[in-house]
Write a protein that binds this DNA or RNA. Structure first.
Lengths: 404, 404
DNA sequence: GTGCCGTTTGTGTAATTACACAAATGAAAA
DNA sequence: TTTTCATTTGTGTAATTACACAAACGGCAC
């Protein structure tokens, strides 16, 4: 008998759907949305494996199970087509025999139906029934997706205003946050992730999924903007800086692992306690990313605005120099000398200023300490610069970044 | 007999005027303009003292003689009124007996008539004749002054364009310079002098006189602008920087000595070889002066833009911080600690960064070296800043200037 | 008062630094 | 070719630095 003939028995709320399907297949069934949150599960109480019971308890599939499924290629297959996928037991994640199918609407995966096939036989008929169950689930999941989409759209619009600083007063922001059931208490920060390649739908799916599962409490929302992924990060006030840093690193590592893309650049801005300061954090995160792209080696270890040091204003000084037609004559003289004498006083000076130590600089340059001292003496003689004077020294350090 | 009755004998060129007056008074006579340049001198060849002969040879009164006359109060009297001044011999400057009178037009002194009275008797009649000679000379000096004024006006207008960068192309500037008989070869720089009090006519007179006498070859022109004295300085290309520096210092010292005003601030800008860059030098001199007023202690020894070091861009960074609502959290934390614990970590850090030496900083703060080390350790603990990292250290050095 | 705790000063040590001087290298000029 | 001169490396010394540890100081809570 097919499902179509018993149309009167088809439940019209998602809650009963799993039980209905389970009855047809004769084994435990769970229905999940695209983010692995449980929509509905059948009421079997025996022969349940670890993965299933943990999933039901948490109302979502545990992280390590999802990871395992991705690694085993199961998720890839499910996203690939609407045909059922047979899954061999994966004891490492507590998963027994399964058959799974993805639920589609047009070109989009709305969720999955999982059947624990431990004892049951899956013949052509059961498979056909599973496919029909998927098309049945599609209607339910569509509604849920639309509700979620609308909510997300509202949140994203709110985020946009927060990032641009156009969200209004503190009171107005709080009101709006309450309306959207968002908590903006504690510490807030904006993170920006930049991909080495442009964002494909697959990358977008992974990113979206991660923001909704990976330390979900801490990531309020995400949005894409010009090939960048923006996150609004929320942490407890204590140790907010460290937690944010560690959170972002973890997020990025996971994203690289999931997407297979390496070299994702991630930065974040000021960690603030007032939501009306979020736009400052946003600008800082953007600027930090910009500067990391401009000075990749020097800023390779930098994640946040605060760590930029002098690079925080290096572009502004550079613009000022441009405008004032200014060139540091000391550097000009050294570079001219280097050219005509085939020496490397410029590099020597840079290394010395960078390390602020003759010993370390000499070691980095593979030269004798006295050679370095001699070169510094030559620099003094040629340019008249006084490296004892912190002001001149500091100026040189900065100008060398700009003038090379 | 009065001069009026022998109207036919009165010379109508300034050259003959001294001889004519000398004939009336029976002694050597010189007529000078307000800048002590010789306009006319009588042809006596005997009984001539050192001051007179040197004056005639150089076509202007020697510098040391003018200085002596100012110090003896003679010049003051001459500028005070139109009555003849008897001058006792001043052997230190090679000056014998003199009687002198200033030549006026309205409220302005146009020049002086000097009579060497060594042998001659000066009675009331001679004094009356001297006064009449002065009024006679006034006509000649007026013409000369008007010609000079017009020329100066042209030069000043040209300077103004050079300073504002609106003097056109290199070729146009050269053409204009030739027309005004100015040499813009070699090295050029703009200097700015600021008076502690507003510029009185007396100060203006001294300043004008100095620019036309003190190392005249090097000072192309001067002009006043908003209580500032601007100089266009010209030097030979070799050692231009040093020569300019030393020239300006000398000029300022002399001006302070002459006017009795102390604390005149003087700065100069980029020493350039192309006249079309003069406006850059002008802007730099202005900015240097501005910054010296803003940071008087830190920049007390600074004369030129090049020596500003990081102060060159400190205002721009400060503006950026303002705009980005940025505060260095390390400094904030230290200042908060200082307030609540009544310590002076902030000053300690500033001193250490300034000297870049524990030894020197400890000496300046009158504390033990280990005390300083201890405080630096506390700063590390409180703020988490790493003073080994040159980038962070440099950032702190700059932010401390801005945030105090 | 007593004890606590942050701060200051003193002692000692190993590493680093600045500097002077001598010797070796190496490339360009005579 | 020899000479010259800038550069590099090595040796030695006195000052400076970072650091550990001990002891003294002084305000403040109990």
């Amino acid at each position: 008998m097919s499902l179509n003939r018993e149309i009167d028995q088809i439940p019209n709320s998602p809650e009963g759907l799993a039980d209905y399907v389970a009855g047809k297949l004769g084994c435990p069934v769970t229905i999940e949305d695209a983010n692995h949150r449980i929509i509905s599960y059948s009421s079997h109480e025996t022969n349940v494996d670890d993965a299933r019971s943990a999933t039901i308890m948490q109302r979502k599939v545990p992280e390590h199970v999802v990871n395992g499924l991705w690694q085993a290629g199961v998720m890839g297959n499910l996203f690939e087509s609407a045909t059922p996928v047979f899954v061999s037991p994966l004891p490492s994640i507590g998963l027994g025999d399964r058959i799974a199918i993805s639920v589609w609407k047009n070109k989009e995966v709305l969720g999955f139906i999982w059947a624990q096939t431990e004892q049951a036989k899956m013949g052509d008929d059961e498979i056909r029934q599973l496919k029909e169950a998927a098309s049945l689930a599609s209607r339910h999941l569509q509604k849920q997706r639309d509700r979620k989409r609308e909510k997300e759209e509202n949140i994203r619009s709110f985020m946009h205003h927060l990032f641009q600083g156009t969200a209004g007063s503190h009171a107005e922001i709080e009101k709006q946050a309450r309306k959207l059931h968002l908590s903006l208490e504690g510490s807030l920060s904006v993170a920006v992730l930049e991909f080495t390649e442009s964002i494909t739908p697959s990358v977008e799916r992974h990113a979206s999924y991660l923001t909704e599962t990976f330390r979900r409490k801490n990531i309020i929302s995400h949005m894409f903007e010009n090939d960048l992924l923006l996150l609004l990060i929320h942490t407890h006030e204590d140790e907010a800086e460290n937690v944010t840093q560690e959170l972002l690193r973890g997020f990025r590592d996971k994203l690289e692992e999931r997407t297979g893309i390496s070299g994702i650049r991630s930065t974040y801005g000021k960690v603030c306690t007032r939501p009306e300061d979020i736009h400052v954090s946003y600008r800082q995160a953007q600027k930090t990313l910009e500067l990391k792209n401009r000075y990749p080696e020097a800023l390779s270890g930098v994640t946040t605005y605060r760590e930029l040091g002098v690079y925080q204003f290096i572009q502004e000084i550079s613009a000022l120099y441009e405008q004032e037609n200014y060139k540091n004559s000391v550097i000009e003289a050294i570079k001219a000398y280097d050219r005509s004498h085939n020496t490397s006083l410029s590099d020597t000076l840079r290394s010395f200023l960078h390390h602020n130590s003759t010993h370390q600089a000499a070691r980095q340059l593979h030269i004798h300490t006295n050679t370095l001292l001699y070169r510094l003496k030559r620099i003094r003689e040629i340019t008249g610069v006084d490296l004892e004077d912190t002001n001149q020294k500091t100026k040189l350090f900065i100008d060398l970044i700009i003038q090379g």
